[in-house]
Design a protein around this nucleic acid. Structure first.
Lengths: 152, 152
DNA sequence: TAAACATATTTGCCTTGACAAATATTCCAG
DNA sequence: CTGGAATATTTGTCAAGGCAAATATGTTTA
């Protein structure tokens, strides 16, 4: 009977699908901004630089957890970024197993260029929301996150 | 100066990070539910079955676009799911280049088992939101999505 | 109609992430 | 203090996605 459903245009997506789509567009937006500046960097690398810039030096494991990346994958990302001179592996002062990952000057300078990309995309994303609505969105998402994590 | 930032616990994440975290927890939740039922299925395969169940048969390209999956990757997922007897590749009636992907009876039956997983996780995710707030969250996310997609 | 262009699917190649094992170091129980 | 459990990092292996090329078909243009 139904010859083929003219895919309703994102009519009534579930929360899961919607979150997925928003995430993909955010990543695309950021990567497009980065590429437009002639820079060569993936979203995950962008995130790593951002965490280090915002939070300062930390261990590889802390860094991996804060971007939800596997430890092994983090090792390889660090290889790449260190190879490009954007960060440094220093010995951790209290724990000889661990590293202290810190941005180099070049890494910090690069982030200065990137922070604009970040802000532009986030602003574009929220341009149709009022300030109140943006805050609510943030609040709701954090509550959803906690609900999911505390799901006994 | 700053000896090491005691990573503030998700204190003030940007929208991008937050969306990413929520998505990861949703995927984990769904995959855990699926595994708890003794079923062997990844999130992306879950999504594909869901789209076919909810929207009915469609071409591989439509399916790929609706879950934001690369066309080549979709071919391989279809290989797997067809090999397991969950869906069928039929010739498309109007377009001989294309396929008409449809669920088999086994695929439909499997989805009947999965729909509960889906609902439970989504309910758990939103359990701390009132009905009004859930609707608002949905609305905000759709507006963000459109803002990102229409970004001229 | 024919050529040029666009689209659907498949396949090969490459990169990346998840998972597990190996090694080094720390922490804890006794 | 010592053995055992836990943790940090690295590496190997494997599965999956992105991209580009190949093929088949459809659509548009001159």
């Amino acid at each position: 009977m139904n010859p083929g459903p003219l895919v309703t245009p994102t009519a009534q997506e579930s929360l899961g699908v919607l979150i997925n789509l928003v995430r993909i567009e955010l990543v695309r937006g950021i990567e497009a901004e980065i590429a437009a500046k002639g820079l060569d960097l993936r979203y995950i690398q962008f995130l790593i630089l951002k965490r280090l810039s915002v939070l300062g030096p930390m261990s590889a494991t802390e860094l991996a957890r804060s971007v939800e990346l596997d430890g092994g994958a983090m090792t390889r990302q660090l290889d790449q970024l260190e190879g490009r001179g954007l960060l440094r592996r220093c010995p951790h002062e209290q724990d000889r197993r661990a590293l202290r990952i810190e941005l180099t000057d070049a890494g910090g300078a690069l982030w200065q260029q990137l922070t604009g990309c970040n802000d532009r995309v986030l602003q574009a994303a929220q341009r149709s929301l009022s300030e109140t609505e943006s805050k609510r969105l943030h609040d709701y998402l954090e509550r959803v996150l906690h609900a999911l994590r505390d799901k006994n």
